[in-house]
Structure formats: structure tokens, C-alpha cells
Design a protein around this nucleic acid. Sequence first.
DNA 1: GATACGTGGCA
DNA 2: TTGCCAAGTAT
Length: 362
Amino acid sequence: MTKQLLDRALTIDIEAFQIDLVLWFTHDHRDMPWRKERDPYKIWVSEIMLQQTRVDTVIPYFERFMAQFPTVDALAAAEEEKVLKAWEGLGYYSRARNLHSAVKEVHEKYGGIVPNTPKEILSLKGVGPYTAGAIASIAFGLPEPAVDGNVMRVLSRILLIENDIAKPQTRKIFEEAVRLLISKENPSYFNQGLMELGATICTPKNPSCIVCPVQKHCEAFHKGIQTELPVKKKKIKKRTVPVAIAMLQNESGETIIEKRPETGLLANLWQFPNIEISDRNLTKEHLKTYLEERYPIQVDLNDHLVDFQHVFTHLTWQISVYAGSFKAKEPITNGTIVNAEQLDAYPLPVPHQKVARLMKGE
DNA sequence: GATACGTGGCA
DNA sequence: TTGCCAAGTAT
């Protein structure tokens, strides 16, 4: 495969390609907060936030995060709860926990200085092959590949690579391609140029080949098959999980929330008590029984208030919200009782944020 | 290698 | 409405 790839890469004028790409990025790149300086910590945080997440979504989170945790040492000293709260709504929360853990390692093991070798960078928790390459090239100017979905799309078209980009193995092929093509003079702009091109011009649908700075190097364009690439196998259908959420209040207007398990979906975030529904007709009774078994409380449940869906990558929650009242017979240990104002301090996943707003009457 | 892991935007 | 997409990683 590598030999084949080498032949294909050599069919284009590598030096001209580098110049066209880097020059284009130099003049046409979008302005982003993390592009204002070369602080490896900021590059690192931005790259973690940008994993599977759009630039426009990330920008406000990045600004707030940097205001709150401006340095490695500041983030290392923070409580996990605060970090998760800053990440609330961004998704893929293990990114926040892994970043926090890795930053603490950098604080302790490297004196707060982000390591500058590809091997050490890759060893950091939450940093995989793409992110390691991005940090190495953008923060330290090293000629390392940083292959994300954009890069695979762009290069699949330019080099006419037809491997399925949904397969993990395929990424390695593109890394080999980048090692052949990357500008040794400016690896940072070369890698960012590839990604920027994919994000703005060489898009999945309706690529703007007319204004593409590397059009003359593109095999797919010459053959008129750019929309056929990249090859990507379709995903399987996701399952639906019915969930009943209890929105409880006592006479003081306080409610019960609990912390989710430290692993799995939405790990370490907080939520309103809930159960998976087995039989829709018996939901109200099941929920009441569950609540009174789990907590030392007496529950009075109303008929269900509203239904809504929340779609995850791999499953869908079909949610029914049940309002009701409770009286605590003893102190609660496996959850906590909070008022509306205190609730704001807890990191909640989006569907539970919706319940919180419901309870406040918003 | 396949699957788990969030969320919001868009055709 | 439904499905796909967006600067992936861990297990």
C-alpha cells in the first residue's frame, strides 16, 4: 500500500503543492482565539475541544475556559467539578476529565511545561495520534502528521485514495501520505492549511473546487469525481432507550439531584433521579417505587408533564418528565438536595438542563 | 477492529 | 423528520 501511495504522491509536484497550500493558509485563514499566539497549553486545550466539534461551537467555550484556567498550573489546581462545569454542554465529557488529568501530570512531572517530543505528547491522557500531531506541528513546528476527518477527505481527493475512512487502519495510510507531502519549512501551516481547506472549501458536499488553491494538484477534480470521495461506510442504526425523569420538589422548593457513575455515558455529571422505562403504562408506579427504595423519602407523583427526545451518537433517550413532591424522612446520602440557585453550580447534561429550566418555569 | 462517547447545525 | 456531519480517543 505504501509503495502504491508513494507512486501516487509522486504524481503531484510536492514542492508546488506545499507552497500553494501554505501561502493560501497564510493569507486566507479564519481568525480564531487560539491562533493569536503559540502557547502550547492553549493549542492543546483548543485541539481537545475541537475533537468532533465545530469551530463556532468551541470558540465561546475556549474563551471562558482560558479566562478561568489560563495556565497549566491553574487548571491543575482546579477541582474536577469546576472543570466539568466549564465543559457543560460541549459534550464528550471524558475529554474534560482526561485533559484535567493530563494537565495535572504535566504540572507534576514536567513542572508545568508541555513536553515537546511527539512520544511524550502522545502519552498524555486524551491525546491520540491526531491531537499529538497537531500539538507537535502547531505548537512546536515539528513535521508530524495531524490526520483528522478533513485531512482524510482532502487527501483522498487529491491523491485519489479510495480506502474506507471509517476504518481506523485507514488513518495510517494518510499519515504516510502526509509524511511524504508535509512542508519541512512550515509544518504548522501545512497541517492547518489541510484542515482549513477541508473545513471551508474541500467540504463533504458541494466542494468549492472553483476557488480551491490546490485545484491543479487534485486528481479527483481532474477526473470530475471529487464528490465520490472519500469512501465512507455508513453507520449502523442507533437504539432508543425510554427514560422517565423525576422532577421532585419539597415544601421549600428544593429538589433532589444525584451524581452519575464515574465511568460510561455522561460520567461524573449530575442528573435528576430517573429510570429506564420497561412498561409505559406502569411508569408512574415504577418511578415512585424506585424513588422510595433509593432514597428515604415519601413521594407523591403527578401524571407525566412533558415528553422529549435527546439524540446521542449511539443511542436516543425518549424522555418522559414526571413532576411531583417529596418529603425527606431522613438525610439523603446518595444524592443531594438543592434549591434552584444551587442547582446552577452542578454540571448537567443537556437533557437534564432542560428539566432544570422546566422546574424554574422557564 | 468495533463500539462507546455529546451536541447542535443543516439538507 | 431523519440522517449525516464536525480539528478523535479509549477500551
